[in-house]
Design a binder for these strands. Structure first.
Lengths: 245, 245
DNA sequence: CGGGCATTTGAGATTCTTCAACTTGCGTGG
DNA sequence: CCACGCAAGTTGAAGAATCTCAAATGCCCG
């Protein structure tokens, strides 16, 4: 699919675009990243990067595709707690802190990723404090998103949560130079429900409502936002938590 | 009040108790913490540690009392995204990454804290990689809690969310050697609602339900759990996400 | 063509919110 | 000591949001 090509970047350019938002990330850091993340891998939909309980032995850099961190609750409910888009490095904490994973990370569609061992990245962070600060900045941004998800999922109604998610995805992709209009949107309504905390039936009705208001639609596995500004209004979306500067 | 004394620890012992759970935290790290966190401060209920938009210039170590990180959403809703209990260090990310705060941190009751400048702590982390790894571990644990809050708030019903919160508080206090039974429980029903994402009316009815089932009550501003095991069952609580080892 | 997965729709039950009123405890000033 | 006010807890009733169960439709792919 030709239009897909524009969404396929060089292995590091997407991370670099994001990390450039962090003051500490300089040319030297970019060199380090380019030297460390050389191995390439592919994952296909539903393949897991990491199983719950696994010892974490790889740091991933998403180059193309989406993945999700999933918590399986004891009563059978599932919750997606993190979305990994192109340019995202994960799991960031495993760089500097050994341990097993408490939850799993699964591919939401076909993914191209680049990898590095925690040891090498950790060594780079110990030797270069700008690199260490960049990792802290990446983690801080991830945490900021987690906190916003708590707030949005706890306080907003389903159609607002959905609108907020859509806005976040748009902005996060823009930060790494991608355009959501021209990419696949790989989430099923079931999976959207596992993000915003709603059943797939209710997600379906929330989409219907936003579609009727000409705010949001998902035609042909893509996302369509006729009027982003109005969508942001209904979601009370403020991009500050994504550190857009 | 005499029974309160048992909840008042030496400035560092609570953090140390928690950090000892992290492999990297050794005697040298303990020395560093004790040398750095010397300044003492008091905060009283509703005082703010940090306003939204403030430049972060202090790292806090909670010695006694509770605080909360609060997001004020654009539509007037408020959400507590983090609870700071004795032994908690915050904001951890500010140690290694400068910037302004996206949300505020407020005292939920009278607090005794110890402080340190981000510069000094950051310097210690750059010079001593065990210290750096300890900070990463503390952050990883905080993030693990954030993810669980997303899952619980998104998937469970109000009485389960309340039960889960109660279990978490019990276990977190135990990790630093405190006993919730013998401490004040400083949250109003309104504030509980801002944590679990429910109105204070609904919180009240959820408490009533758990009280009727002899699972949980809040008599005289304290917490009473007649049967922790049964409370954990209704909350589907599994303490693994608190890294209890 | 058929099977499987995702989407869509309907109807009824449950959870949660809203609004309003009433109660309780507690400190403060007269 | 009492009166008052205020914050927090409690309760009722109506309505909105969400879930559950069930069925129908659409669509891709072998």
């Amino acid at each position: 699919m030709i239009s897909e090509n524009s969404a396929r970047l060089s292995p590091h350019s997407c991370l670099v675009a994001k990390a450039r938002l962090c003051d500490s990330f300089d040319d030297r850091c970019q060199e380090i990243v380019e030297q460390l993340f050389v191995r390439r891998l592919q994952f296909s939909r539903h393949q897991t990067f990491l199983h719950e309980g696994d010892e974490i032995s790889t740091i991933y850099l998403m180059c193309h595709g989406w993945a999700a961190r999933v918590i399986d609750l004891a009563d059978g409910h599932r919750q997606i707690t993190e979305l990994f888009l192109p340019g995202d490095l994960f799991p960031v904490h495993a760089t500097m802190s050994k341990g097993t994973s408490g939850d799993s990370i699964v591919a939401l569609g076909d993914c191209q990723i680049s990898t590095c061992s925690p040891e090498k990245l950790s060594q780079a962070a110990v030797q270069n404090s700008d690199m260490a600060r960049t990792l802290w900045w990446l983690s801080k941004r991830d945490v900021s998103i987690l906190r916003m998800w708590i707030a949005v999922n706890s306080q907003y109604q389903a159609h607002q949560r959905l609108a907020h998610l859509a806005c976040e995805v748009i902005y996060r992709l823009r930060q790494v130079g991608l355009d959501a209009d021209q990419m696949e949107f790989p989430l099923t309504q079931e999976e959207i429900g596992e993000i915003i905390g709603a059943t797939s039936v209710h997600v379906n009705r929330s989409i219907k409502r936003l579609r009727n208001d000409a705010l949001l639609d998902f035609p042909n596995g893509r996302i369509d936002i006729p009027n982003l500004e109005r969508l942001e209004d209904t979601a009370h979306f403020d991009s500050a938590y994504l550190f857009p500067n």
